[in-house]
Amino acid sequence: MSDAAPPAVLVEGLRHAYAGGREALRGVGFRVEPGEIAALLGPNGSGKSTAFRILATLMRPAAAAGPSGRVEVFGACPWENPHAVREKIGVVFQSPSLDGELTAEENLRCQGRLQGLRGASLREAVGLGLERAGLVARRGDRVRGFSGGMKRRLEVAKAMLHGPELLLLDEPDAGLDPAARATLWEQLDALRHGAGATVLLTTHLMDLAARADRLVLLDRGSVVRTGTAAELVDAAGGEAVRLEPADGDAAALADDLRGEAGLSRLRVLPHGPRPALRLRRADAAAWVLGLRERWPDRFSRVSYGPATLEDAFVELIEPAAEVEPAPPARRGRGRGR
Results as ranks from 00 to 15, higher is better:
residue 40 L to H: 06
residue 282 A to C: 09
residue 254 A to H: 10
residue 329 A to S: 15
residue 98 L to G: 03
residue 221 G to T: 14
residue 125 A to R: 03
residue 126 V to F: 04
residue 327 P to E: 15
residue 280 R to A: 12
residue 114 L to H: 03
residue 29 G to V: 03
residue 323 V to W: 04
residue 236 A to N: 04
residue 298 R to Q: 15
residue 239 E to W: 05
residue 162 H to G: 01
residue 217 L to V: 11
residue 55 L to Y: 08
residue 105 E to F: 00
residue 20 G to E: 07
residue 150 M to S: 05
residue 107 N to G: 08
residue 34 P to W: 14
residue 195 A to F: 05
residue 277 L to C: 12
residue 152 R to N: 08
residue 175 G to C: 06
residue 334 G to D: 09
residue 123 R to C: 04
residue 174 A to I: 10
residue 264 S to D: 15
residue 11 V to E: 01
residue 135 L to T: 03
residue 3 D to F: 09
residue 329 A to V: 05
residue 192 R to C: 02
residue 322 E to F: 07
residue 271 H to D: 15
residue 78 P to S: 15
residue 254 A to Q: 12
residue 300 S to L: 12
residue 321 A to F: 06
residue 53 R to W: 05
residue 10 L to F: 12
residue 193 H to I: 04
residue 90 G to H: 01
residue 260 E to D: 10
residue 160 M to E: 00
residue 115 Q to W: 01
residue 100 G to T: 02
residue 227 G to P: 11
residue 79 W to L: 05
residue 263 L to Q: 11
residue 4 A to W: 01
residue 139 R to A: 13
residue 56 A to I: 03
residue 71 V to E: 06
residue 142 R to M: 13
residue 248 G to A: 13
residue 72 E to A: 15
residue 241 V to N: 09
residue 41 L to Q: 03
residue 14 L to I: 07
residue 37 I to E: 02
residue 37 I to W: 00
residue 260 E to I: 05
residue 241 V to M: 12
residue 46 S to H: 03
residue 87 E to T: 06
residue 220 R to K: 14
residue 72 E to T: 02
residue 76 A to F: 10
residue 158 K to Q: 15
residue 2 S to R: 14
residue 306 P to Q: 10
residue 49 S to E: 10
residue 169 L to Y: 02
residue 105 E to I: 01
residue 18 Y to Q: 10
residue 211 R to C: 11
residue 327 P to Q: 13
residue 210 A to F: 01
residue 160 M to S: 02
residue 282 A to P: 07
residue 335 R to E: 15
residue 271 H to Q: 15
residue 16 H to N: 13
residue 256 D to V: 10
residue 114 L to P: 00
residue 203 T to W: 06
residue 333 R to V: 08
residue 294 R to S: 12
residue 216 V to N: 04
residue 140 G to H: 13
residue 219 D to F: 07
residue 160 M to Q: 00
residue 297 D to L: 08
residue 326 A to G: 10
residue 323 V to H: 06
residue 229 A to V: 08
residue 182 A to R: 15
residue 33 E to L: 11
residue 336 G to S: 14
residue 89 I to S: 02
residue 292 R to K: 14
residue 216 V to S: 09
residue 212 A to G: 03
residue 42 G to Q: 03
residue 18 Y to N: 08
residue 71 V to R: 07
residue 187 Q to C: 13
residue 73 V to H: 08
